[in-house]
Computed example of a mutant assay.
Amino acid sequence: MARPSVIPGIKVRLEEYLDQREAEYLAQADFGCKPTLPLTPDGKVNVRALASAIELTVNQEKYLYERKELTDLINCIAEGQGVLPIGARTNPTAADNAIKERLIRQSKTAREASQAAVEAISAQQELLDRIRALSNELEAAKSETDRLRARLQAVESGVWITVQ
């Protein structure tokens, strides 16, 4: 037999909690009403704190994100209190902009370093080619020198005869 769903029980506890928070919010003076829902530093509903307040287990906490009927209850109260709903994206802050700028600079630096590496490898290859060519020239010059020394030695020893 299938286990009974825990959603109805969670929904009842959530509705009671949200009703209490809404009553507290409405009881505040018209000016300076502060949200009574738990908030994250960036002004969104703090779902973990809310789950803790209604005594959900860690495994049950996910239902507040996943189940539309629960999420809609929370978001309805949140919007009424001027709080960003679950899953809302906030506007980029100065810190976000600073991070983006730093990433752009790092990307540019990485591109420049990559280009410099390609140029260095190309220059290195040119130098290696030049070294090979000079090595070949040196070997040819050594061979020529050895041949000329042998001729000179033959002339000095009188073996070299020139026919005219």
Rank of each mutant, 00 (worst) to 15 (best):
R111D: 15
E112S: 12
E112T: 14
E112C: 11
A113E: 13
S114V: 08
S114R: 11
S114Q: 13
S114C: 12
Q115F: 14
Q115K: 15
Q115D: 15
Q115S: 13
A116I: 03
A116P: 01
A116M: 08
A117M: 15
A117K: 15
V118C: 10
V118K: 11
V118R: 14
E119T: 08
A120V: 04
A120H: 11
A120G: 02
I121A: 12
I121C: 08
I121G: 01
S122G: 10
S122L: 14
A123K: 06
A123T: 04
Q124L: 12
Q124W: 06
Q125S: 13
Q125K: 14
Q125C: 01
Q125H: 13
E126M: 11
E126A: 10
L127K: 12
L127T: 07
L127Q: 11
L128W: 02
D129A: 09
I131L: 02
I131F: 01
R132Y: 04
R132C: 01
A133L: 12
A133S: 06
A133Q: 10
L134E: 10
S135M: 04
S135E: 05
S135D: 08
S135H: 07
N136R: 07
N136D: 07
N136I: 06
E137D: 08
E137F: 03
E137C: 01
L138E: 05
L138Y: 03
L138P: 00
E139H: 08
E139G: 03
E139F: 03
E139Y: 07
E139Q: 05
A140K: 09
A141F: 00
A141P: 00
A141R: 04
K142T: 01
S143Y: 05
S143A: 11
S143C: 07
E144V: 01
T145F: 07
D146I: 05
D146Y: 04
R147M: 09
R147D: 05
L148A: 04
R149G: 00
A150S: 08
A150G: 06
A150E: 14
R151H: 11
R151C: 09
R151D: 13
L152M: 11
L152E: 08
L152R: 05
Q153G: 07
Q153F: 12
A154R: 02
A154H: 01
V155D: 03
E156Q: 15
S157C: 13
S157H: 13
S157A: 15
G158V: 02
G158D: 03
G158A: 02
